[in-house]
């Protein structure tokens, strides 16, 4: 690592404004007289993929990449990204994370094991390494301000508490870089982020949107003519027509409720309805408002 330099990592998913936030950080640091190098990766970002950015600053910086276990601060705009990048933070460093979760389509699709795949919130992960942790619901804060897209400014506000530069540099950088007309709301979001207390967080990952268990498949055998369309369009291989031409459910558990079979049944013979009882996902604690 270059002499006397410090590192910051920003991570989120496509569309959250990670790159803009990273430009603001770099701009603010330069305004404060630091040498700054910044690098970003946004490969599959448009499909909700991971976006991250390394920033290093100091008297002289040779490479933008923050080595493992040396970042001063991790700013995570999404929960799984916080878990993914926490290794980069030095012991005793800081983690600022939005507690909102954005479950990628891949994890949703794997409906039988998504709970295992999407990381639950694990306080020990942070406590054991003496990390200064700030968990905030930046998305909700920004929504209250009237523009959910200002969530990145809320996170930046909290991040600013861990970076030793004058506040005027932050505000100048934000006013300079955010889209015209949104300066006020972003500055307001930044100030809230700076003053934010630790937020209440769910104990486990919440239910991914749109999936709460296998759906109910109902077949009207009197109307069904066994044309085989449904079984061949089903992405989850739930249905099959047996040798007698009778439609049968071969994997009821796999139904995700996409309703392709229902929409393409010419005989009105299939009906898909929401699960009878909501699946138990173990986030009752979140509903009760308990904290870590």
């Amino acid at each position: 690592m270059s002499e006397g330099s410090q590192g910051l990592l920003l991570a989120g998913v496509g569309g959250q404004g990670v790159i803009l936030a990273s430009m603001i950080v770099a701009d603010a640091l330069m305004r404060a007289g630091h040498d700054v190098k910044q690098s970003e990766v946004h490969g599959m970002a448009q499909r909700g993929g991971s976006v991250f950015s390394h920033i290093r600053w100091g008297e002289r910086v040779d490479s933008p990449l923050v080595p493992l276990g040396s970042a001063e601060v991790l700013a995570a705009f999404e929960w799984a990204e916080a878990v993914r990048w926490v290794e980069y933070v030095r012991d005793g460093g800081a983690v600022v994370a939005d507690v909102r979760t954005i479950v990628p389509p891949g994890a949703c699709n794997d409906h039988r094991s998504w709970l295992r795949r999407y990381p639950g919130i694990d306080g020990e992960l942070f406590d054991s390494r003496h990390l200064k942790t700030r968990l905030i619901d930046a998305t909700a804060t920004a929504e209250e301000l009237g523009n959910v897209r200002a969530a990145n400014s809320v996170i930046l506000g909290t991040v600013a508490a861990f970076i030793d530069i004058d506040n005027k540099h932050w505000e100048a950088a934000i006013a300079h870089l955010v889209p015209k007309g949104t300066e006020e709301i972003n500055l307001a979001a930044f100030r809230i982020g700076r003053d934010v207390a630790e937020a209440r967080v769910p104990q486990t990952a919440p239910d991914p949107e749109g999936f709460s268990g296998p759906h109910q498949i109902e077949i009207n055998h009197v109307w069904c003519k066994g044309c085989d369309i449904c079984s061949r369009v089903c992405p989850e291989y739930c249905l099959a027509v047996d040798v007698d031409g009778k439609l049968t459910i071969i994997d009821a558990e796999a139904c995700t409720g996409c309703k392709l079979c229902e929409a393409l049944c010419p005989d009105f013979a299939i009906e898909i309805s929401a699960p009878r009882e909501p699946a138990v996902v173990g986030n009752q604690a979140a509903a009760d408002g308990s904290t870590l």
Partner: peptide, 26 residues
């Protein structure tokens, strides 16, 4: 959508796999 159907007349006369039924549902 079944509230818009004359259920007593179903199943309809169309052949297996005929897309006209899909059109009707839409």
């Amino acid at each position: 959508v079944k509230t818009y159907l004359r259920e007593w007349a179903m199943p309809h006369v169309l052949c297996p796999g005929c897309a006209h039924g899909i059109v009707l549902r839409s």
